[in-house]
Every structure is written in structure tokens, then in C-alpha cells.
Lab assay of single mutants.
Amino acid sequence: MATKAVCVLKGDGPVQGIINFEQKESNGPVKVWGSIKGLTEGLHGFHVHEFGDNTAGCTSAGPHFNPLSRKHGGPKDEERHVGDLGNVTADKDGVADVSIEDSVISLSGDHCIIGRTLVVHEKADDLGKGGNEESTKTGNAGSRLACGVIGIAQ
């Protein structure tokens, strides 16, 4: 089992970053940390998408990683996509320092995120509470600013 993974985020604009993942036990939580720069100040949706395909930019990554066919939600919700990591918060300089621990994603097994795409979005994720159909699919997080395929790390 891989215990570490990394993702280099890039987009068409100024947004870029490096996100690290570490899972010490196969059924334990995954620590997610790193930094994203070039964002507007505020909240930005942060999700693992189904495919590791960036051939047409971030759009070819498909929908959120959702092997259990659930509705979109927040990272602490029972009803959520596996890939729903909530929001990252950018400061006035456009930098989001990421520090998350998640017990639904994994670096092995059915919820493995390796080979899938991590995406940072234009807007805040409403965590499935926006009151419309799009909220239950995407959290109304808007366009995909930057993305990268999650790969095994040393």
C-alpha cells in the first residue's frame, strides 16, 4: 500500500500549488496538507474528481469521485461524495494553506484517490446545502481553477 501521495495543481491562470497526502494505516485517516497560491481571497471548493484525465484541462477530470452514488455534502457529513473535501481558505495575498484530515478518502482500496484528479474551484462549496439540484452534485463551487493528478510519492 502506498502511504504517501502528492498532487501538483496547475491551471490556465495564476492558480498553482502542491498538496501532499499521507496515510499511516490502511483504514486510518489521510492527512492532506500543502499550499495553493494565486486564488482570490475567501473560500474555494476542494474536491477529488473521478478521473485522472487532464487532456482537456480540468474539465476532463469528470464529476466528483463518488463510488457510493451519494449526494454532495461537506467533509463531516454522512451523506457526501468520497471526493468531497470541503473548502480551502485563501488569505488576502491569495494563498491557501491547506491542513485537512479526512477519514473517507484513502490511498488504497475502494476509496483510493491515487490516479484521480484534485481540483480547486472558483467559488465556495455550499456543502450540499444550497437548496438546488446543482448543490447536491457540485456544491455550486463554480469553474475549475486548477487541477492535477494525484500520484504515489516516496
Rank of each mutant, 00 (worst) to 15 (best):
T3F: 13
T3N: 14
T3I: 05
A5R: 03
C7D: 00
V8E: 14
K10N: 13
K10R: 12
G11Q: 12
G13D: 08
Q16I: 14
G17M: 04
G17C: 08
I19L: 13
I19K: 00
N20P: 00
N20L: 10
Q23S: 13
K24Q: 06
K24H: 13
E25H: 09
S26E: 15
N27S: 15
G28E: 09
P29F: 14
V30N: 02
V30S: 07
V30F: 10
K31W: 08
V32E: 03
V32I: 08
W33C: 13
G34Q: 00
S35F: 15
S35Q: 09
I36Y: 04
I36T: 10
K37M: 10
K37Y: 05
K37G: 12
G38T: 05
G38I: 07
L39E: 03
T40P: 09
G42K: 08
G45C: 00
F46G: 04
E50F: 14
N54V: 12
C58G: 01
C58R: 03
T59P: 06
A61W: 01
G62V: 02
H64Q: 03
L68T: 11
L68D: 11
S69A: 06
K71W: 12
P75K: 04
K76H: 12
K76M: 13
E78L: 13
E78S: 10
R80I: 00
H81D: 03
H81Y: 05
V82I: 12
V82F: 13
V82T: 10
G83R: 03
G83W: 01
D84P: 00
L85Q: 05
N87W: 00
V88P: 04
V88N: 11
V88Q: 11
T89P: 13
A90D: 04
A90G: 10
A90L: 07
A90K: 07
D91V: 08
K92N: 14
D93V: 10
D93Q: 12
G94N: 10
D97K: 13
V98G: 07
V98W: 09
S99W: 08
I100R: 13
I100H: 10
E101N: 14
E101K: 12
E101M: 08
S103A: 08
V104E: 15
V104S: 09
S106L: 08
L107H: 06
S108V: 10
D110W: 12
H111K: 15
H111Q: 13
H111Y: 14
H111A: 14
H111W: 12
I113W: 00
I114N: 09
I114S: 09
I114M: 10
G115M: 00
G115Q: 01
G115A: 06
R116C: 00
R116Y: 02
T117W: 01
T117G: 09
V119I: 08
V119W: 00
V119P: 00
V120H: 00
V120E: 01
H121F: 02
A124W: 08
D125M: 03
D125C: 05
G130F: 09
G130V: 08
G131H: 04
E133A: 09
E133D: 09
E134F: 04
E134L: 11
T136Q: 06
K137R: 08
K137E: 08
K137S: 11
K137Q: 05
K137M: 07
T138N: 09
T138V: 05
T138P: 00
T138R: 07
G139D: 03
G139P: 00
G139T: 01
G139S: 00
N140R: 07
N140V: 06
A141R: 01
A141M: 03
G142S: 10
S143Y: 14
S143H: 07
S143T: 13
L145Q: 13
L145E: 12
L145M: 12
A146E: 04
G148S: 07
G148C: 05
V149S: 05
I150L: 06
